[in-house]
Design a binder for these strands. Structure first.
Length: 284
DNA sequence: CATATGTCCTGAGAGC
DNA sequence: TGCTCTCAGGACATAT
């Protein structure tokens, strides 16, 4: 489930790799179905071994490693992927090992790993041109971390979708997933089933404000490690934001904001939505 | 065109 | 105990 805060935490955690040269790439043998690696492993190896990492970045929910060849290595964790510089949770689900030359820079880091329990994620190499194509404004909306109320309104106000569903649309706004959509709408005091077309300008502003507030707070706590314990930062440490959720995964418990309402769970687009019936009233 | 549904994948947990 | 079934939800393909 890594969303913006988890992916941003992983990105920051691999910043020590900047300045390091890639010396080898290996795919550990694995009884599981292999993850998507593109282009093929030999081609990937040929194109990145010998290059140096010059920058890390984030494209929505993807970790981007920029190389001095102008190619970008993009890690897409989807549900259970992790980008690590420390030992992984286990070796069974280790999917790709990138060996770094730690002598190129004084740093303890000597490897960059991709680990993925369910294997829905991928590691892909993009040329600068391909990268622009794949993650340009047509594919990815403004980053949620600094999206404005006006941007949200312009992109979504004519939509008939429920606001919770619309916030998951990465072309509208990038980085929000199921967990943070629930937390954002709770803080903004908007019912998740409200149609976008029914929201007023002040509502869009409140959603933008709540988005900045929730995401900044979640990054401060290094993301949310849920019950399955999968998510870890780049050093294989758990996030702590799960202890501060107001509604997510808290059905039947008291709302973290008003502490009067009991959190309800509903289903929208086959995904769980959590909200407080007291804070988040449906307007008609 | 916008919106909705199906698909991929693994492991945990429920139920019998 | 050990089997089968359901569920979790990222992004994308396909259907309505």
């Amino acid at each position: 489930m890594p969303e913006l805060p988890e992916v941003e935490t992983m990105r920051r955690g691999i910043d020590d790799c900047i300045g390091c040269q890639i010396v080898a790439v290996q795919r550990p043998r694995c009884r599981l179905k292999p993850i998507t690696i593109a282009p093929t492993l030999p081609t990937l190896r040929h194109r990145i071994v010998g290059t140096t990492i010059v920058k890390t970045d984030r494209a929505g929910k993807r970790v981007v490693v920029c190389l001095d060849s102008d190619d970008a290595l993009v890690f897409e964790p989807r549900m259970t992927g992790l980008v690590l510089v420390a030992d992984p949770p286990n070796t069974e689900h280790l999917r790709l090992c990138i060996q770094l030359d730690s002598q190129t820079k004084k740093s303890s880091t000597s490897q960059l790993l991709y680990w993925d329990r369910r294997g829905l994620g991928s590691v892909k190499l993009f040329s600068a041109e391909q990268f622009t194509q794949a993650f340009g404004p047509a594919r990815l909306g403004p980053d949620a971390i600094d999206v404005t109320g006006k941007q949200l309104r312009d992109r979504l106000e004519s939509s008939r979708r429920a606001i919770k569903v619309a916030l998951l649309d990465q072309a509208a706004v990038a980085g929000i997933g199921n967990l943070y959509a629930a937390e954002i709408l709770c803080l903004a005091k908007i019912h998740p089933q409200t149609a976008c077309s029914q929201l007023r300008p002040a509502d869009w502003q409140r959603i933008a404000d709540a988005t900045h507030s929730i995401l900044a707070e979640a990054i401060r706590y290094e993301g949310s490690t849920l019950g399955d314990g999968t998510y870890r930062n780049a050093l294989n440490h758990e996030g702590r934001y799960q202890n501060h959720h107001r509604v997510y995964d808290r059905a039947g418990q008291r709302c973290g904001i008003c502490s009067r309402g009991k959190v309800k769970r509903i289903v929208q687009c086959q995904r769980s939505t959590f909200y407080c019936p007291c804070c988040q009233r449906l307007r008609r």
